[in-house]
Computed example of a mutant assay.
Amino acid sequence: MSMKKQLLMFLLMTAVSAANAQSRMDTIRLADPTIFYDNRTYYLYGTGSPDGFAVYTSNDLENWKREDKPALLKSDSYGLKSFWAPQVFKYRGKYYMAYAADEHIAIAVSDSPLGPFTQRVHQPITEPGKQIDPFIFKDADGKLYLYHVRLDKGNRIYVARLKDDLSDIDSSTLMECIHADQGWENTAASGWPVAEGPTVTKINNLYYLFYSANDFRNIDYAVGYATSASPTGPWTKYMGNPILSRKNTGQNGSGHGDLFTTKNGELFYVFHTHSSENGVGQRKTAVVKLSNLGQNPAVISVVPGTFHYLQIKN
């Protein structure tokens, strides 16, 4: 075989090999995602199944595997439909999943982040009205707070003290945190303004409430944050909002996710985007790294060039 033919054959085989490798990788498609790190493993959950929540695992945030068994099935806990926006956390030696189903909030428990997450009694938080997007924050003093969205003249973010046994909230502590009242938060001038997807962290004794605004179908769906000296507010929105949007991801509908810290102590945000430039579809799961400029209060921003989708091997 001539050198020219050998070179052509090599290039052809290389192209086929690359194509095959690419075909074995798929972008994970979970909306409202969350990542939980425990014992050298990252666990990924999100909205994507009508029957509960799947779980994906990774050791490096790059190579993901979908586990064979779901983390939560509707037969094991509260809810018949609309399983949305899970959050997993560890408390008193057990693993808990807070999630929305039937537009109510429930909390299930497991001995493992893989699940199965179950409830002995299949019931939601008892507060009346429609509620979604739960996030449970444990403060340094051990007190627990349930941040969530209540559907009342728009999607509004509320907080309430959660009882120590996680059985319910203390209704007397329920109060509104924020609602969508700024131009970037309602670019469609909707009569039902949306602020949702809360996630909370504490930096230098200041509380940071990250949230998404606009309807998730809007290409301007985006993420901002507010700060407070108290876990219950009052909250002051950052003047530089939004910090994450299609302007710095290049993807429509960038939002609704969760903060997480890597094994190296780096702060990341996992979120979803629309499936394509022309449609919402099965939303795709992505991450970005966040920077803390070290000021007090800290200014949080997206590190340029860190946006990428999460991939699963077929």
Rank of each mutant, 00 (worst) to 15 (best):
N292V: 08
E196I: 05
E62A: 15
S171Y: 08
K237A: 07
A101I: 06
N205D: 15
G240A: 07
Q282C: 11
K5H: 13
L166C: 10
G253K: 00
F117V: 00
M97F: 02
F89C: 02
P113K: 02
K130T: 06
K5N: 15
F271H: 05
M25D: 12
Y221M: 04
N214S: 07
D111H: 01
G253P: 01
A229R: 10
A101R: 06
L293F: 13
Q251F: 11
V302W: 00
G255E: 01
I107C: 05
K313R: 14
H179I: 06
F268K: 15
M3C: 10
T41R: 13
P304F: 03
M9S: 07
S77V: 11
V280G: 03
G115W: 01
Q251W: 11
Q311Y: 14
L12I: 09
K94Q: 13
W64N: 02
T273D: 09
F117I: 00
Y211H: 13
D152L: 14
Q295M: 12
K90H: 15
F216G: 02
T273C: 09
V194Y: 03
Q22M: 11
A21F: 01
E185S: 09
P50Y: 00
V299K: 14
R156C: 14
K94I: 01
D165E: 06
G197A: 12
V223Y: 06
E62T: 14
F271G: 06
V194T: 10
D102V: 07
T41H: 11
I136V: 15
T47F: 04
I203T: 04
G279I: 04
Q131W: 06
V287G: 12
P231E: 08
Y309W: 12
F210S: 08
T118D: 00
V223G: 08
R283H: 01
G265K: 08
V200Y: 05
A226Y: 07
A106E: 04
V270M: 09
V280F: 08
N296T: 09
T187H: 07
L44W: 03
V287S: 13
L166I: 10
V121G: 05
E277S: 12
G115H: 02
S291L: 12
H274S: 04
N20V: 15
K94D: 09
G46F: 01
E176R: 15
V109N: 08
R40A: 14
N314Q: 11
A140Y: 05
D170P: 07
D215H: 14
P134H: 01
A160M: 08
K138F: 03
P86M: 02
P134G: 00
R150K: 14
P304E: 02
M239W: 09
L30W: 03
N218K: 07
C177R: 06
L11F: 11
Y238C: 05
P198I: 00
A19M: 13
A31N: 11
Y158A: 03
K4C: 11
A21H: 05
Y95Q: 05
Y208L: 11
G154M: 05
S301H: 05
V288R: 02
Y37H: 14
K69M: 01
S110D: 00
K284M: 00
F307D: 12
Q182E: 15
T57Q: 03
K247Y: 13
P86Y: 04
F83M: 04
A101S: 14
G255A: 00
L290F: 06
F216R: 02
R156G: 09
Q119F: 01
G240C: 10
K81R: 10
Y42C: 08
G255N: 00
Y309R: 12
